[in-house]
Amino acid sequence: MNSHKVFQLMRKNINNIILVAIFIVVIFPVVWVFLTSFKSGKLVFDLPPVWIFNPTLDNYKYLLFESRFALGVNILQNMKNSIIVAFGSTLLAILASMYAGYALSRFRFKGKKSFSLFIIATRMLPPIGTMIPFFLLINSLHLIDTYSALIIAYTALNIPLATWMLRGFLDEIPTELDEAAIIDGCGNNKTLWTIIAPLSAPGLMATSIFSFVLSWNDFTLANVLTKREARTLPLVVSSFLTEEGVQWGPLSAAAMLVFLPPIIFFCCTYKHLAKGLTLGAVKG
């Protein structure tokens, strides 16, 4: 009788059970890395894996402070680089994309269709293919290994998607509001920033975060545009830890450090982010 009831309950919730299984498989690598980053030296390689243990911060200490003396890598500096570059490029990309997205959403002008096609076309360009053109450009400007190099590259990389997302969010705000503001003597520019931007704050936030993460996650472009001073976190971590052989503890700590901003941002703004990403796809 009881087992029959359990079976009934399982049948009723079969979708949930399958999804929970998928959920576990998907987040397993992240959870495993998270736990490994707190394991002490010997435990890291233990099989079967240990799930309950005394967590230590040794790996993080090694990564952030000791690796500097052991391997001559200053992770804190690279983290600073990553943050500056991601912030700078996000700010510029959002500024340019807000104007472009507003124009695409509100104005009728000659060449509007070509402009929006141009935006989509640049989005399809492969970063790995763009690597050489970017290198030529940055090299000729004598900007190799500077923040400016990466900020220019990431701004260009972020504009197409940011414009597209912002346009979708702005389309959802009724145009009557702009019209009223303009009749009241508010210029287009002022209307955009004082009336429309605050109303689209969640969308603006989601787009900024997306843009930040895109810059934060890049490896390909940073790899050829920097040499030493401006190297970003993913580059340094992957090069020095793979050459060192099997340092799984510090490697896991590094992975968590790099994953942390995307994970936090994603959990906080998941709803708006998902909406922004799908706006164009479902409609178009």
Binding site: L19, V20, I22, F23, V26, I27, P29, V30, W32, V33, T36, V213, W216, N217, F219, P234, L235, V237, S238, L241, T242, W248, L251, S252, A254, A255, V258, F259, P262, I263, F265, F266, C267, Y270, A274
Partner: peptide
């Protein structure tokens, strides 16, 4: 919660994802 978990990998740094899987 299911959606956040299942969609999470989308935001993660590809290079680091490669290294994590290299360990796994």
């Amino acid at each position: 919660i299911l959606m956040i978990g299942i969609l999470l990998p989308y935001m993660l740094t590809p290079t680091m994802v490669g290294l994590v899987w290299k360990m796994l």
